[in-house]
């Protein structure tokens, strides 16, 4: 039975490798052109988030991460509070 299990694991690894190698075997088929954006950089949009080299996007992203973590913390805080209340009773 043990041998069978080892065989199964080997199969798993071989399968995973086959998947990976054939993926790696194909070269970078599609070098996506990042610089090929349409030349509309002169068009100023009335959009604060695009000003100053788009630094505000970074700020928004950081804020999102912060709010997400803080909301999570608040829910945890509430759970602890509930438990404390139950503990007192």
């Amino acid at each position: 039975m043990k041998l069978f299990r080892i065989l199964a694991i080997c199969c798993f690894i071989v399968g995973a490798l086959a998947g990976l190698t054939q993926v790696q075997a194909q070269p970078e088929q599609a070098q996506v052109e990042y610089s090929s954006a349409p030349a509309e950089s002169d068009i100023e949009m009335a959009d604060t988030l695009r000003q100053d080299g788009k630094i505000w996007v970074v700020v928004v992203v950081l804020l999102t991460v912060m709010t997400g973590l803080i909301i999570y913390l608040i829910t945890l805080d509430r759970k602890v509070g509930k438990l404390e209340k139950q503990f007192k009773e």
Partner: peptide
């Protein structure tokens, strides 16, 4: 992440800094 030097890229501009947060 906010203050360091980053490469200047066309569309990305400063948003390349999101690499550290996203």
């Amino acid at each position: 992440g906010v203050l360091s030097e980053v490469p200047r890229l066309a569309i990305l501009n400063e948003t390349i800094r999101n690499l550290y947060f996203h």
